[in-house]
Design a protein around this nucleic acid. Structure first.
Lengths: 162, 162
DNA sequence: ATATCTGCAAAGACTTTGCATGAGA
DNA sequence: TCTCATGCAAAGTCTTTGCAGATAT
């Protein structure tokens, strides 16, 4: 693979996440870049296989195993969050963009599995969560790094079917 | 199987959850009673296999398949909540006791997998959540039935190892 | 009486591991 | 150059399904 693809990044400075890799002693490779690129260009909650298929279109040599291993790594270093929406396969999302944007939570329909991202009330939530985190961290001597909030119920379509 | 076991329940009136079964057209059977009994007597977050083993001690004839099917049913009718703590097996908890007690959330250590139940700050959380639920229900026309909150981080033991 | 439920065995789905080859720093 | 990363194939683990026999109401 020629360096062309990577030159595109270099032309606008190294991608913001390179530091995270080097800092932790990991290498920057084509599959890793491709997976991050796929994740950064979607708003969906992709499964490992969906990521594999998308990456595979750009770089057919990349295998599913590498996708799994890379996702595990990305979750480990905090670049990616792994979700379980109850459809028995893991879903992945970039934990934050270059600007730390896009913080949101999920609304999951227990009938059809649809997942809606919402950012409403996030400010109030975040405020309460930060207080809670502080209190919990102190009481249980826990170093809290993340949180998960999901609401479950019936979406409008499934509601009307009942 | 003689009716002795069930007489014990009848002697103190039918268990509180019988109505939930009959109302939904499901039958009350030994395996179902045994599974609910196991769940009601633990504070742990049991996996399907752990539940199976516990049930199996009381009723060796009950199989793992039935445990899975029963848990699915219990989750469906809202008696049990299914969790994912990241150890790639589902965990189950009674969603509430006879008195609706024990509402709590979880603190998950991402290093060792330990899960701590906490009830601190629950009141404030619940208040905020109810407002949020109301707002979300309206905006997205969702009928919200449940929520999930988990905090992730390092527990005290894993913290000191780093 | 009869629609449900159960247990066993087998299949299914997602994810992980072993190992030789290939590639980043 | 020398680890670290990858791909393929195979294995592993949890969970679901098919079906005949058993059971609750």
């Amino acid at each position: 693979m020629p360096r062309g693809l990577r030159m595109r990044h270099l032309a606008m400075g190294p991608p913001w996440w390179h530091g995270r890799f080097h800092g932790a002693g990991f290498r920057i490779t084509i599959p890793r870049e491709a997976i991050l690129e796929v994740l950064s260009k979607t708003q969906k909650h992709l499964s490992a296989e969906e990521i594999y298929l998308a990456v595979h279109r750009l770089h057919p040599a990349v295998g599913l195993t590498t996708v799994y291993r890379t996702l595990e790594l990305l979750v480990h270093i905090g670049l990616v969050f792994k979700f379980d929406f109850g459809d028995s396969r893991a879903r992945y999302e970039l934990s934050s963009g270059p600007k730390g944007a896009r913080h949101h939570h999920h609304l999951v329909c227990t009938a059809c599995g649809r997942v809606i991202d919402y950012t409403d009330f996030i400010d109030e939530e975040v405020e309460l969560l930060q207080q809670t985190e502080k209190g919990l961290a102190k009481k249980y001597n826990f170093k809290i790094t993340n949180h998960l909030i999901q609401f479950y119920g019936l979406c409008d379509k499934c509601r009307s079917k009942e």
